[in-house]
């Protein structure tokens, strides 16, 4: 089977590791080979968390520069920083709500302009899906569900060999009952918004 490589990039506390575990569980349910890896140095202290998820016929658990089929970014400047993982055929999905690093928050350095950031990514990659996932997470009822909003939009692209049913079932295995409804709603909101964006912007990338 084809190999599909996904990089998830986030700031500590944004729920990256749970998101990749959900995808891993979904792959297990779908009986698709999956290998994952995470680097979370000092994530709880504000650092970057990177996960790689490799679906299909490959043994490596990490993804080299230029070899990601999809880059899923939880924070816009981190999405841009990780863009070297992509090639011109890659699909990039990002949350647009910034979480500026401390030096930017106190005005010592400038956080990248969001419009320019989007133009750069759009120009370099095959398909770019960007929206405010924090807003949708709030709409779903819980800010912490942002990861599921992004997972929803990821599944919408159809690039990964995972069905909505697999992923929803996996969410149910990893999320406590009291939070499940909000998480599933978050997934649906992300799924829908990506559909709109893809329909409006990228016509032919779905493979």
């Amino acid at each position: 089977m084809n190999t599909k490589r996904l990089i998830i990039i986030a700031v500590g506390g944004q729920g990256n590791l749970l998101a990749s575990k959900v995808l891993g569980e979904a792959a297990l349910l779908a009986d698709i080979p999956v290998h994952m890896s995470e680097i979370h140095g000092m994530a709880q202290r504000g650092g970057i968390v990177e996960s790689s998820v490799v679906f299909g016929d490959a043994e490596s658990t990490i993804i080299s520069d230029g070899e990601a089929d999809v880059l899923l970014g939880f924070e816009p400047s981190e999405t841009l920083r990780a863009i070297n993982k992509c090639n011109s055929n890659s699909v990039v999905i990002t949350n647009l709500s910034p979480l500026p690093p401390y030096t930017a928050a106190i005005g010592k350095v400038v956080y990248p302009d969001l419009d320019k950031l989007q133009d750069l990514i759009r120009a370099k990659t095959e398909c770019f899906v960007a929206f405010d996932a924090v807003k949708l997470a709030k709409e779903a009822g819980n800010l912490m569900c942002m990861n599921m909003v992004l997972i929803g939009s990821l599944i919408q692209t159809g690039i990964l060999p995972l069905s909505t049913e697999n992923v929803k079932e996996a969410i149910a295995t990893r999320i406590k009952n009291i939070h499940l409804e909000a998480n599933l709603k978050a997934f649906d909101l992300g799924f829908c918004i990506a559909e709109k964006i893809i329909r409006a912007k990228c016509f032919s990338f779905k493979k």
Binding site: D65, G66, E67, S77, N87, P101, V109, K116
Partner: peptide, 22 residues
């Protein structure tokens, strides 16, 4: 043919995000 990572020459400097004390 190695994979070609996207060109990052025109990407502006992105503020670093070193871990810090909480």
């Amino acid at each position: 043919t190695p994979a070609q990572p996207v060109d990052v020459a025109d990407i502006p400097e992105i503020p670093q995000r070193p871990p810090s004390m909480c």
